[in-house]
Amino acid sequence: MLRLFCLIALFFVTSAQAEVRVLTSIKPLQLIAAAVQDGIGEPEVLLSPGASPHHYALRPSDVRRVRDADLLYWIGPDMEAFLPRVLESRDKPQVAVQDLPGMTLRRFGDSHDEHDHDHDAHEHEHTSADLGHDHDHRPGSLDAHLWLLPANARVIAARMAADLSKLDAANAQRYAANLQAFGQRLDVLDGRIRPQLVALHGKPYFVFHEAFDYFEAAYGLKHAGVFSVLTEVQPGAQHVAAMRERLQQAGPSCLFSEPPLRPRLAETLTAGLPVKLAELDALGGNLPVDASGYERLLENLANGLTECLGSL
């Protein structure tokens, strides 16, 4: 009996050791990791979707998770400004995905991003609930919302599969199969949403946060303007008037905010105008973490755009 007990205990210890602990900084990376680890392990995430990576304050439990994870993936210092200092004391593999070979990176001010920021009508938004709203959006700075380009997700998933296979060689074939299945599902998704997004070309829409350029570039879309507004400070009447003029000139249009908060100014801006208020979620905050989560993130963006713009 004692020998049997020892064998069972050894089995459980071995099983516990076999699962590689993957930690990602934000949920979109967790969704990509979940596709690669499907059936083998479950990746963890450091920040909740409502937390700002720019001003996030790590708790002692967070520091331990960063230290103990076998593999850690983050966007890079242009997104999670709080992480570099903590990572200095980490001795296990860590990957800033913005530095991976093969990534397509955009900078604010790239040719796709030629909407005119009317500085008289432009205030920066800083809210604790807006991921990325408070990092640098100046022309030439990196647009860190790189996960919204499907080609980048493929590069990230391939690196994750390679890293996991090194640490967990027994499951290398499964990681490779999961990676292949992920790519095939993205192909199917692309075939499904591309036609519906083509039908939206030329329809005007505005955003409160410049987060969607990668997705727009992939599908030939382009927002007509960005209205970034301080939630703590109401912009002056001149600013509001200038923003409303932009909306009036556009005619029937959509104005998208991001959950969980809609800027208080939204109703003031759109009152009496043929503008529909809607939401786009760049983070997939409410999505379950499973093998298909990343595709649902993209599909929800496509459906959100279609639902609003298709009704104009």
Rank of each mutant, 00 (worst) to 15 (best):
L2V: 03
L2Y: 11
L4F: 05
C6K: 06
I8W: 11
A9N: 06
Q17L: 15
A18W: 07
V20D: 00
R21I: 01
R21N: 07
L23H: 01
S25C: 07
K27Q: 11
Q30F: 13
L31W: 04
A33P: 11
A34N: 05
A34V: 03
V36D: 01
G39T: 12
I40T: 14
G41D: 11
E42H: 10
V45F: 08
V45W: 07
L47C: 02
L47T: 10
S52L: 00
D62P: 00
R64K: 09
R64P: 00
R67N: 15
D68P: 00
P77L: 09
M79L: 15
F82C: 08
P84A: 06
V86D: 00
E88T: 06
E88C: 05
D91T: 08
K92N: 14
V95I: 14
P101S: 10
G102P: 04
R106H: 12
R107S: 07
D110K: 02
H112L: 14
H112E: 15
H115F: 07
D118G: 03
D118Q: 12
D118V: 05
H119Y: 10
A121H: 05
E123F: 12
T127H: 14
A129H: 13
D130E: 11
L131P: 12
L131I: 08
G132F: 01
G132Y: 01
H133N: 12
D134E: 13
D134T: 08
R138M: 02
L142Q: 09
D143F: 02
H145S: 11
N152S: 00
V155D: 03
I156V: 10
R159F: 06
M160A: 08
A162I: 02
D163F: 07
D168A: 14
A172H: 09
A172V: 00
A177C: 04
N178A: 10
L179I: 04
Q180C: 11
A181Q: 06
F182S: 04
F182Y: 08
R185G: 13
D187T: 15
D187M: 11
D190I: 06
I193S: 01
P195H: 08
L200C: 05
H201M: 15
G202I: 04
K203H: 03
F206N: 02
E210N: 12
A218D: 06
L221G: 08
L221W: 06
H223V: 08
F227G: 01
S228Q: 08
L230Y: 10
P235R: 02
G236V: 13
A237F: 07
R244Y: 10
Q248G: 10
Q249E: 12
A250P: 04
G251M: 04
G251A: 11
C254I: 01
C254F: 11
L255N: 08
F256E: 14
S257Y: 14
E258L: 08
E258M: 05
P259S: 00
P260M: 05
L261Y: 06
R262V: 14
A266Q: 13
T268Q: 03
T268E: 09
L269N: 05
G272C: 06
P274Y: 02
K276A: 11
L277Y: 06
A278Y: 09
E279K: 15
D281P: 13
D281E: 07
D281C: 09
D281L: 09
L283F: 05
L283E: 15
G285L: 09
L287G: 12
L297A: 03
E299A: 09
L301R: 14
L301K: 01
L305T: 07
E307A: 13
S311L: 06
